[in-house]
Computed example of a mutant assay.
Amino acid sequence: MKLSERDKKILHAVISDYIETAEPVGSRTISKKHGLNLSPATIRNVMADLEEIGLLTQPHTSAGRIPTEYGLRFYVDSMLKVKRLSRAEKEKIRNSFKGLGFDVANILKEASRILSMASQHIGVVLAPTFSTVRLKHIEFLRLRDNLILVIFISKSGIVQHKVIQFEEDLSQDELDKFSRYLDDILSDLTLSEVKQKILEEMEKEKTAFDEMLSKALKLSKRAFQNGVEEEKDVYIEGHANILNYPELSDIETMKAIFKAFEEKSIIIKLLDKSMSATGVQTFIGSENELIGVEGCSVVTSPYTKGSSTLGTLGIIGPTRMNYSRVIPLVGYTARLVSEILAEIL
């Protein structure tokens, strides 16, 4: 879509004022406030044209205009000037992570708190799944004949478990020996590396047969055969900030938002969409999947280790959020979390 410079200035003025006030913006306000050297009548005509092409809408006949979702999308994609975080802001965010040590849960919880506090919206962080982290320890516990509980512990402290059947009835003493052996060869590997390592070791074992080694490798292959159950966790901070959004103050809307946060699966599904993306993504209004919730936008970014995506973090707020501030805040926090976790995971 091509807009004239005059059209862009008036659209920008409407969106800027709406972000600030959450109220419809009139032509007289723009004429007085933005120094465009245009009469209210001219501005009103341009606003009518912008409404006709779907960028603005008039909630009531006597009211001013507000941007549509389409108008906000055009603004973010074509007009937005992203403000860089100042050195002091970056330093404040970085200092917030000091003293948290190697506890990944605390680091991610702090990231969601920072996003919420700095934006005055809702901060969300999707935690890494087990398949993205490195193995520290594998343990086997005999439950009964041929039934074994396998416990996987990652370097970052994530714990997963599964129950498997094995054709031989193994004693707990044998299982403990297998665990010690497998820790030696599988420790510090990712899940995909573990599977490959087991296959390599099984090939070696064919030429240098060892009964204990053979059983241990067969057991570990069974343990990793169908993957490890993934329990996704999400950290959410700033629920109370919803009360500051007049456009979301309708009781039914607030119920729907709080339900989404309580169930978490909707938020996880939303954040999952960004796992394969590069850089900051914006989902405006109906583009996001907060089912039953109108008027919300989500800005997300994956955090990574090398070329591997570990999880996603972001900010949820009203569609009139200050994108020029929120986008760099999400981007910088994601890069910082990536940097911190690279030293731990």
Rank of each mutant, 00 (worst) to 15 (best):
G295N: 07
Y235W: 01
D250L: 00
H239Y: 15
A277C: 05
I242H: 08
S308G: 09
I251N: 15
E287H: 05
D272Q: 04
S297L: 12
V298C: 07
S286D: 14
F224W: 15
S307C: 02
S286P: 10
Q281M: 14
G227I: 01
Y245T: 09
E294Y: 13
L248N: 08
Y235K: 02
V298E: 06
Y235Q: 02
G292M: 08
L310D: 01
K269Y: 01
L290F: 08
F283K: 04
S276C: 10
V280P: 01
F283I: 06
G227K: 11
T278F: 10
I291T: 15
E229P: 13
T278S: 15
I242V: 14
E230R: 11
G295S: 02
S249K: 13
E287M: 00
Y245I: 03
E287A: 05
I242L: 14
E263I: 06
T282A: 14
G285M: 07
G292Y: 08
H239W: 15
I251K: 12
L243F: 03
S301E: 06
Q281W: 11
G292Q: 12
I266V: 10
L243N: 09
I266G: 06
P302A: 10
L290G: 03
K273H: 01
M275Q: 10
S286N: 07
Y235P: 02
L290R: 03
V228W: 13
G306N: 00
E247S: 14
V293K: 04
G238E: 02
F261Y: 13
S276T: 05
Y245K: 01
I291D: 15
N244I: 11
G279F: 03
G285R: 08
G295I: 02
F224G: 12
P246W: 06
L248G: 05
K269A: 04
K264S: 07
E247A: 02
Y235I: 05
G238A: 11
K232C: 07
T278G: 14
L271Y: 07
D250H: 02
V280Q: 06
E229C: 03
I284M: 06
M275D: 07
Y235L: 03
T278D: 13
Y245H: 07
N244M: 09
P302S: 11
E237D: 15
Y235D: 03
D272N: 07
D272P: 08
A240V: 05
S265C: 01
E263R: 02
A223E: 04
S308C: 00
D233Y: 14
K273L: 13
Y303N: 04
F258P: 02
D250V: 00
V228M: 09
S276L: 08
T300W: 09
E247T: 14
G279C: 06
M275A: 03
K232P: 02
S249A: 13
L290Q: 01
I268E: 04
Y235V: 00
G311L: 06
F261H: 13
D272Y: 01
S297I: 11
Y235M: 02
S301D: 02
V299E: 10
I268W: 03
Q281K: 15
A260G: 03
F283Q: 08
L248W: 03
I268K: 12
V293M: 05
A223L: 01
F258G: 01
T278Q: 12
K273T: 00
F224V: 15
V299I: 12
K273S: 10
K305C: 10
K259M: 12
T304M: 10
E262W: 04
L243D: 07
I236W: 10
D233F: 12
K232Y: 15
V228E: 08
